[in-house]
Nucleic acid binder design. Sequence first.
DNA 1: TCCTAGACTTAACGCTGTTAAGTTTCGGAG
DNA 2: CTCCGAAACTTAACAGCGTTAAGTCTAGGA
Lengths: 219, 219
Amino acid sequence: MGMKERRVREKEVVRTKILDAARALFVAEGYEAVTMRKIAAAIEYSPTAIYLHFRDKEAVINAICDTDFLKLAARFRKIAEVADPIARLKAAGFAYADFAMRHPNHYRLMFMTPHPPHSPDESVIEVGNRDQDAYAFVLWTAAEAIELGLLRPELDDAELVAQIVWAAIHGWVSLRMTKCNEPWVAWRPQKRSIEAVIDVSIRGILRGPAVSAGRKLKA
Amino acid sequence: MGMKERRVREKEVVRTKILDAARALFVAEGYEAVTMRKIAAAIEYSPTAIYLHFRDKEAVINAICDTDFLKLAARFRKIAEVADPIARLKAAGFAYADFAMRHPNHYRLMFMTPHPPHSPDESVIEVGNRDQDAYAFVLWTAAEAIELGLLRPELDDAELVAQIVWAAIHGWVSLRMTKCNEPWVAWRPQKRSIEAVIDVSIRGILRGPAVSAGRKLKA
DNA sequence: TCCTAGACTTAACGCTGTTAAGTTTCGGAG
DNA sequence: CTCCGAAACTTAACAGCGTTAAGTCTAGGA
């Protein structure tokens, strides 16, 4: 009976081999360096064997990114316990930046290269579920901050607020990644720098400290 | 006598043909779509002819980006006339975002893909000259804002301030570019969105309105 | 008239992702 | 036990890429 299941299990083994070999290449040298032939050589199969397990090269690398991004989701799940939405937003910002800097090639592929409209059905990640989808998490937190009246009254749109803070942190991350070795920009220490970015973003959206609602400059 | 100059002139013509053909491909379809063979076909030369005018494919595309980026520099030169550094920073932010959205492929190549340490001698752009180098422009403006005491006292580092606002706007631009068609993020109208990003960044770095120096929360 | 320098082409190399066709292996049915 | 069919895998190839070595052709200068 269990014959079929054994076959499935064996196939799963090869699939995992492929993913592990591809991941090693990917984290070390990035998308371009991952070659069907190199993966094949690493696992001692022929290049075409990979196509029995994945539709194409993109599918291989998407599988890697999907599984690895669940680790970020796990960290977010912890952060979700923070009650204060502002503190939560800050914590998420740090976690996001830290994750990105630790997995630069994953990050680059997922957030810095354009893709054909991602078909959600073939991904593990559940869109809109804030335990799996980082954007949904930020959106949820922004909505809560608005509801508690913590933000400036113009910022009544959670989607907009989420996009603002996401942009700031993503901008910091991606500039660091692509321009880290440029001689014409003097990067400050990573910790100090990301702290400043998060601090400025939060202050920028926050309702001013003890300034009564009516007293705002229009400039 | 003028024979040599004529030869030089003729060579320049071919060089320009190459650049024009390559630019057309580049703006329409991006780096990957620019192929030595396609350029060659467009100008009715053999692919190898291109190598008589450019070291390699990268050199062709760098030449395009360099010349086109001088247009951004021209806009910045106008903005340099704005006296108030805060207003100048805002104006530069809008100009930067506008330029990026109008030349997405240029922008992607220059700011969203990693390069081997750029050798400055073979580029037209003069690093550190704020009339040609956009980063130098922002740096200069940030330094002036600090000097005039317009920013929060912790932000006494022009380089850091420049990086913060650059990150925010670059983040907005690059997210828009790569994730513009994602169904899971509801982008707000471009104008409203970039205005919010710039507004939040500026408010985040600005000394609070009429809050005396001693009264800041440490949280 | 001959020579040389430069512009250009042809043919090729080694690499890529991908596919059509062929081989090998093996559990299950007759 | 034999045969079949399906699944796993390989070999060989295609079309494309950037790049280069070698050869051709043209025209100005001696």
